[in-house]
Design a protein around this nucleic acid. Structure first.
Lengths: 152, 152
DNA sequence: GATGAAAAGCCATATCG
DNA sequence: CGATATGGCTTTTCATC
């Protein structure tokens, strides 16, 4: 599945503001509103666009504490088992299996330090988790969305 | 700035689908469409909602390779200097200063391994960077947005 | 196969109570 | 905050290239 230049410009326009009208996007990329809608519908059907969401200031919503937890699993733990185990935590914003010493890296948003510690202890207590290593975020420097970063 | 329960439910509804109509959101949270709009306008004005964006499948846009780069800086490097230095890289999706051994963690999306390596080398060559340590993402397990994680 | 124009219905939004 | 009205938008239909 490859997108052409027009599709990428439409996605970029939506990345900047997902509530822009199709007419506005059309004015940017040089298409009529129905043509833009057809392409967006197609991109959704193909799975290139998976949805539209809101950008929030975590602190304003009460999540003051952010951190990364590296998870070291017992041998023969499948990625799918990790995913299912972690999916239950609403505090987890993202999780990935990675190369290197740890098996997975988990990004956590918590209300405060006490809350973060609770999440950490619950994750550390999961049956497939052998040990964890966590770092706290001191200050977020950049926060973009992947759609805004064009491939080289 | 604290949000009440109604605000949080509106944000949650927008996190699931930012293009939902105010009438739809109103049906979910029990308000009329104008009441929802007024609250969304207020949340934007307050900075709790910073925008609306599209969720994309990175692979569909040609970013097949993802990884984290830990940056170790020379002493007396200010967070702002790091931020300004990293802001020039379109491949960087997020960056934060952190506790622990490294000074900052940077999340990178690249087209392929060769591209990732180029980004890594350019970052490692920044004047304030002493050394780096990077891990590649094998498979993304979860990918949510912070707005979907309610505080405890 | 993709586009633009036009029409119909739906939605955003301002104003009222 | 809800009801209402208007203007704009989304979305379908259809003819065209």
């Amino acid at each position: 599945m490859r997108l052409n230049d027009l599709d990428e410009r439409i996605v970029h326009a939506l990345a900047e503001d997902a509530r822009r009208s199709y007419a506005d996007i059309g004015a940017i990329v040089g298409l009529s509103a129905p043509a833009v809608k057809r392409r967006v519908d197609r991109l959704r059907a193909e799975g290139a666009i998976t949805g539209f969401t809101v950008r929030v200031d975590p602190a304003a919503l009460g999540w003051e504490t952010e951190g990364f937890i590296e998870i070291y699993c017992s041998r023969n733990t499948s990625p799918d088992a990790i995913r299912q185990g972690l999916a239950r935590y609403p505090e987890i914003a993202s999780a990935s299996t990675v190369t290197g010493e740890a098996d997975a890296v988990v990004q956590v948003f918590a209300a405060d330090m006490r809350h973060f510690e609770q999440v950490l202890e619950r994750i550390a207590g999961e049956p497939y988790v052998e040990r964890t290593k966590s770092v706290l975020v001191l200050s977020p420097l950049l926060r973009r969305y992947s759609a805004e970063a064009p491939p080289a």
